[in-house]
Structures are given as C-alpha cells and as structure tokens.
Amino acid sequence: MIDVKSLSKVFFQHGEEIPILADLEMTVSRGECVIIDGPSGCGKTTLLNIMGCLARPTRGEVIIDRRRTSHLPEHFLCELRRSRIGFIFQQFNLLPGFTALENAALPLAPLGIGSKERRRRAEPLLDFLGLEDRKDFQVTDLSGGEQQRVAIARALMNNPEIILADEPLSNVDALTAERIIGVFRDLLEKGKTMILTDHSPLLARSLPITNAYRLERGRLS
C-alpha cells in the first residue's frame, strides 16, 4: 500500500544542511500495523508527515497504491490526504472556539457537506469513541483524553484507509490509553492500515504489530 523508496530529507537552516532522514526503504501492505520507534528528535514525525504527503522528501519517493506522490501538485496531495489518510497528532491540534463535534466534522466542510449533514455523520463516530455526552462541549473544556478521542474522530471522518498516528498516547492517562488502543484494534480488524510512532512499549504490546522499525541517526532498522 505504501512504498518508501530511497527517501531522504534535509532541512536547511541559516545556509546549513541538516540531514534528518537518509535513504530510507520501507513497505507497508494493506491492513498492516507498523510501529516506528526512536529517540526524540530522530525524525519520526518528519517521516510520518512525508508518508502522509504533508511534506515532500528532498530525494526519494513515497508510492501509495502504485501512485507516485513526489510529482503530484499540492492540491492532489490534499485530495489524497482527505480521502485516504487520517492524521492523529501528538498534541491533538484541535481548533479552539469550535465544539468537539465541529472539530470532528471539519474534514467534511471542503466536500461541500452542510452543517446538518456534518453533524449527522460525526455523531455516530463520537458515540463510538465514548463522547456522546461531550459532543457540544468546547474542546478547551475537554480533558486530554477526550480531546485525543475527538482528534481520532476527526482523523476517521472521511473513512480513510491509512491512519498515521504520531505518539497518540503520549498526552493521555492510562485509562484513556486503553480506550484508544481498543479503538485502534477495532480499526485494524476492519482492515485499516496503521503506521504509528511511539516511545512506550504499550502499543507494541497491545496491538498486532506486523513490523517494528527503529529510526536512529536518520536510518531505519
């Protein structure tokens, strides 16, 4: 499903090259669950963002279902992200000033779906994630665990095949973590492809991991 070929990423700062990723090769098949581990600052988020077409590699290629993404214009990458990829961020990244339901339904707005229909589609997802009583709360009034579940609902709104989660459990309590792991298991059973980055062994222990990679000094092992 996702092929990473000779992928390199270099950042430029004050005229200096800072290599982050170097010649990575990876293949993730449909329905697999892949975990990428590594010390802080090793480039896990960068790799995830490139695989999710949020950033472009300096060299190399990400191929999603035999479709090369490096040459795609920005709006095609957006289309890809909208229809096939769901992002779950470490910091939740919800929009303050909107309710849980409105945040969860944000991916539907560019599709021209009106607010009533957006509500109709988002409600079952929030119920599934145990947020039936929190739908109309402002996200700033939710706990960390609740916010992360809203973020998960947002990631799943367009029914993506690929879910990328960047340290999804790092800002939640143990109970919420269990809950989220349960959700991930459900998604894997439904045939979703998941790529996660995480420090803790909890995910590795709890999910049917197909492949585990370690990213260190820009290389995968």
Partner: peptide, 16 residues
C-alpha cells in the same frame, strides 16, 4: 499558523 497547518493536514486545500 498551526491551525492552518492542521486544516491542510486533514484535507483542506490551499485555495480552501
């Protein structure tokens, strides 16, 4: 800026 980044991550285009 972060909000815009998130919107684009969830599928909003630049023109949106």
């Amino acid at each position: 800026r972060k909000e815009i980044g998130v919107l684009k991550a969830i599928g909003w285009r630049t023109l949106d």
